[in-house]
Design a protein around this nucleic acid. Structure first.
Lengths: 223, 223
DNA sequence: AATGTATTTTAGGTTAGACTAAATTATTTG
DNA sequence: CAAATAATTTAGTCTAACCTAAAATACATT
């Protein structure tokens, strides 16, 4: 009875997974905003995903949605595809790190398990994609992520950049320019109570930079 | 007003192109057989493709269908994607020539123009795919094909294999085994009036082989 | 030219996945 | 705690692309 997991369903599951990562359930509205779909349509799909067998999500009216193990597996499969593709596009076809997201977002739904395995092999079974995001393993478990948002650091703290959000090309180009890349060390020179801005020194760069929370919330570091 | 060319439409156009290659118009039934779609559904789609603006096909009731220049361009785009992907899968990811068709058939619809250009570059702008089929150029023209079916040769003729159909993995495995590959020379030892079988000697092989028309019609050679 | 067969078209129906407008339920705030 | 606001759900539509059954047309043969 195992149902067909369409491209559309894969997108729902992927975004539910990401919204669940902070321990929260995903709300209808948040999902709708992420998927660019009307909230009413999302409700319909969530009801369907909950009633399919095996169920892919646990859904209670007005209380948001979480993934079942079956839903999580399907989500991790798509995320694995996405991140392997991103790295492959950079390493094998010379894409820059701000160009890969859109391409991977389409192809992730259509590559075979064979293709996935060959790409993983060609890349030497990598742990992270070009933005530092962890790649789910072949047996569909997500490695532990120890990182926290750069925005949570305070004056005089030191940390290593681990990953950055991959979905905003303009942000990625900016980060490349100012040298904020995975595995680069940063020192917080100042935290502003007023606007949350961080002034920081980036390893290998001459001048200090100031970043607002719109940016620092999307950069993840380990202390 | 240029309409969206969906995956489904791309499939129709690709198969119409292939059916038109021998100079014939494509019949509703032939198309239905190729696409694995009921003839009635094909009629509906052909009417739509003819009435869209710009028209993608020229369609007259009961008289089959041909492509307009716009339809041909769209078809060549898909075929270029397919053949570049096939070659890339073999050269870069170690696929064998009987494994690539299914993967390329899915991905051809979803790669970007950027991806296409990078793959073409990585392959050195190749002329032919792993089965010897000609790859449409970047400006969407199909190179001249001078080949004819092996089935049309007669006793004592000599020829070079140029290409073989890519869509039957079992046939491809068999041809690999008997050494019938692009650029290999063959000599016709005998033609049988009765069943059309050809007995031939393949360059580099010890023993002669006998092939029926189901096979020899799918192998193309130049004399 | 008439008739049988094969091909093609029409008509009506289904499914997935979206939409909008209106109704309902929760949450926040005065 | 009631009213306002925000979030969610229901109900009814729409489109693309398929389906089947029946009708119509074309073609092939006597």
């Amino acid at each position: 009875m195992s149902e067909i997991i369409t491209q559309s369903i894969q997108d729902y599951l992927k975004h539910i997974y990401e919204l669940n990562e902070n321990g929260n359930t995903a709300s209808t509205n948040d999902l709708a905003a992420r998927l660019n779909i009307a909230p009413a349509s999302v409700t319909g799909m969530l009801q369907k995903l909950a009633s399919v067998s095996p169920a892919l999500v646990v859904y209670k009216k007005h209380q948001g949605v979480t993934l079942t193990r079956a839903g999580e597996k399907a989500a991790l499969e798509v995320i694995r595809h996405h991140r392997l593709l991103e790295l492959y596009l950079v390493k094998a076809l010379g894409y820059s790190w701000d160009e890969v997201h859109a391409e991977a977002d389409r192809l992730e739904h259509f590559i075979s398990e064979d293709f996935e395995a060959r790409v993983a092999e060609a890349l030497g079974h990598p742990e992270r994609d070009p933005h530092g995001e962890l790649i789910p393993t072949a047996d569909l478990t997500m490695p532990m992520d120890e990182s926290c948002p750069l925005a949570s650091l305070r004056t005089d703290e030191t940390a290593t950049v681990k990953r950055v959000s991959d979905d905003d090309p303009a942000l990625l180009r900016h980060l490349l320019e100012i040298g904020v890349l995975p595995e680069v060390k940063v020192i917080i020179e100042n935290y502003s109570e007023l606007d949350g801005n961080l002034t920081l020194h980036v390893e290998g760069q001459k001048s200090k930079i100031v970043l607002g929370t719109a940016i620092t919330k999307r950069i993840f570091v380990e202390k």
